[in-house]
Structures are given as structure tokens and as C-alpha cells.
Nucleic acid binder design. Structure first.
Length: 308
RNA sequence: GCCCAGAUAGCUCAGUAGGUAGAGCAGGGGACUGAAAAUCCCCGUGUCCCUGGUUCAAUUCCGGGUCUGGGCA
């Protein structure tokens, strides 16, 4: 049985979605989302989901599947994504994983074991309170006593990760290092990352931020707030959402909100590059100016054949 | 035309009681197994506007000039 899985990743605004769409048309594929914000319902404009036409044309999986009040986790995502991939393969089609959320990419690429660690909101709040009172250094020392190995991998200022590591230890499974994981042997990955000259990418990011605002981002955020989704939800902390919330609260004007969105998106793109550079088996597709999507897809298919 | 203030990193500015300078932002690099569009770490040489003078030494003090704000005519 064919078990080829395409992965189209790359920094935000590099054109992953449209490239995946054309690739899907060419190879009879279906698209699986790997973007942590596009998973949420009602967040269409800000997360730059594919157009309705694209979604009708080609089956898209894991888009708009979660309520913004819920908290998607990697473990959950991994389960859903692998199910979607297996389902597509079973129907004789080719899955195309599309998205730039690095941790989620890992969850698909690697044989990661998230175990049966239950949600324990109470314990997390306890630890958060402790961190606030005693400081992150204290928490780090505490972790060092429990799991020195994990502690050595986490910076003492990174309270969030320290808390997670403590939780993981208490549940009986420490945080493993990725080097202990194998590439998922069930699939034949064709892994691509879209890139382009940094200045050009930044121009695209800036332009897209402007476009999101003119196409109704403020209304989208206003509606989300009206529906009762609060600014502290992980979904509402997405880029584009948190900045518009600040504008609606009168913290700054729309012009500044736009600049903030642009800046935060650029920072995000940079972090995505850093993440993607860790994979030595990724095929970088460096987009040239003036190149059509069809030409890009040709290059991807050529490279995919070459890698067999 | 006159008076006042400013001119220092890509931007906003601090500073050097005279010994060639440093913050924030931007930018760059990096880490990351259950919040990941999150969280966290590291990276600062630039004609200190030009030009004379004083001085062992001037970006710093003094004179002149140029430009930019603001005020008065």
C-alpha cells in the first residue's frame, strides 16, 4: 500500500496553502491542516485559512474543528492528524500536510509518545501560583531535584516549560528529548519547506497584515468577543487577534495595531525558520520572483521523485 | 533676519565632570514532547553633523558653518 505523505511547511505567508492546493489537484491529494490557529472555528480571516472555493474543490481536513474556548493540545492533534492521514491513504489518495506549527510537525514526523497523561487543571494552577510567589529560579531548582535531565534542558527563566516538566514528572513520565524518538516508520514522508528571500517574505507579511484588516479582521474579532471568547484563551492570543483586542480596548489606534501585527508576524516567521532548520531531511523550495504556483509544484514533484 | 533647542547605531534617545560610547525598538542567531501564532535565551564600531581653536588628548569645552525643530519679527 502506498504510504506517501507530503508535508508542505515554511514560514507564515510563504504561500504554503495555495501551493498545497495546486499540488493536491495534481496528485489527487487531500489537505491536512498543521496550523495551530486554523484548527479553530470562527477564526478565518486572522488565521488566513484557505478560501471557501479551495475548500470545496479539494477536501481539507482539521480546519475549523475546535471551538475557540477549547484548548487543543499536541497529543490531541497528533491523534487527529494521524487518523486523517490514515483515512486519506485508505481511500487511495495522497495526504498533504500543510502548516507551519513546528511542534505539530514533530508530532506527525516522529514516533512521539505523549502517554496517558491526564489533564490536571488544579495542579497546574497550583504550580503557577507557586511560580508567581517564589520565582522561576525556585521552580527550576525544584525541577532539578525531580528530573535533573529535564532541568538541564530548560532555561531557568522559562517558567512555562519548567511547570510542564514538573507535571510530566509527577505523572510518571518525564519530558523526553526528541533525540530519543524515531521518525515515524509508518509513512514515506516527502517533506518540503517553502522559503524566499527574507526581505521579500517580510514585504508579503506586511502586505498581508494590511489585507487582513481591510477584509474584516476587526469585525471577526468583535464577533468572537461578543460570542464570549475571552482574551486569555490560547486561541485569542493568536497573532492578529490579540493586537486587534488591544485596539478595541482603546490601547492604541488601528494603524498601530497593524504595525504590531506585522512585527509579531515577522518575529513568528523567524522562529519558524529556526524550527525548520533543525530538520536535515527537509527539502527547501526557494521561491523565485515571478515564478508561478504551477512551476513551484513542478519543482516539488521533481524533487519528490528524485528522493525515491 | 534675530533668538532658543537639537544634531550620537536602521529608528527613538541616553551618556562621556575632556581619555573615541550604550539602552529600548527594529534587525540577526538560537532552544523547545501535552498552552507552540505559546514560552524562553544570546548578539550593539557607529565619519558621536562639518570646520577651526584650546589641550598631551575633543564626540564632550570655545568660535564659525550647515541642517532640523520651535519662538519672535
Amino acid at each position: 500500500m502506498n504510504n506517501t505523505v507530503y508535508i508542505i511547511s515554511g514560514p507564515t505567508a510563504s504561500g504554503k496553502s495555495i501551493i498545497s492546493y495546486y499540488l493536491a489537484k495534481r496528485i489527487n491529494g487531500e489537505i491536512v491542516n498543521c496550523d495551530s490557529i486554523q484548527l479553530y472555528k470562527y477564526m478565518d480571516i486572522g488565521s488566513a485559512k484557505p478560501s471557501e472555493k479551495e475548500m470545496e474543490d479539494i477536501p481539507h481536513h482539521l480546519y475549523s474543528i475546535e471551538d475557540p474556548s477549547e484548548n487543543m493540545t499536541v497529543a490531541q492533534f497528533r491523534k487527529l492528524a494521524l487518523e486523517a492521514i490514515d483515512d486519506i491513504l485508505a481511500r487511495g489518495k495522497t495526504p498533504i500536510v500543510c502548516g507551519g506549527t513546528g511542534l505539530y510537525l514533530n508530532a506527525i514526523l516522529y514516533d512521539m509518545d505523549f502517554g496517558a497523561v491526564p489533564d490536571d487543571e488544579e495542579r497546574r494552577q497550583e504550580l503557577e501560583k507557586l511560580a508567581e510567589e517564589r520565582g522561576s529560579l525556585y521552580m527550576h531548582e525544584y525541577l532539578e531535584g525531580l528530573d535533573p535531565d529535564a532541568a538541564s534542558r530548560i532555561h531557568p527563566n522559562n517558567t512555562r516549560k519548567i511547570i510542564r516538566a514538573i507535571e510530566a514528572f509527577e505523572y510518571g513520565k518525564g519530558i523526553k528529548d526528541l533525540s530519543e524518538c524515531e521518525l515515524n516508520p509508518d509513512y514515506d514522508f516527502k517533506f518540503f519547506a517553502i522559503t524566499m528571500e527574507r526581505d521579500w517574505l517580510y514585504e508579503r507579511i506586511n502586505r498581508r497584515a494590511s489585507r487582513l484588516i481591510t477584509s474584516g479582521l476587526v469585525d471577526e474579532v468583535t464577533n468572537l468577543l461578543r460570542m464570549g471568547y475571552t482574551p486569555d484563551l490560547p486561541s485569542m492570543k493568536g497573532i492578529g487577534y490579540k493586537e486587534i483586542i488591544g485596539f478595541l480596548n482603546g490601547e492604541y489606534d488601528l494603524y498601530d495595531a497593524r504595525e504590531l501585527i506585522q512585527k509579531n508576524t515577522r518575529h513568528y516567521a523567524k522562529r519558524q525558520y529556526t524550527w525548520l532548520k533543525r530538520y536535515d531531511f527537509v527539502n527547501w523550495i526557494d521561491i523565485r520572483k515571478g515564478e508561478t504556483v504551477g512551476e513551484v509544484v513542478d519543482r516539488i514533484l521533481d524533487a519528490a521523485e528524485g528522493s525515491d
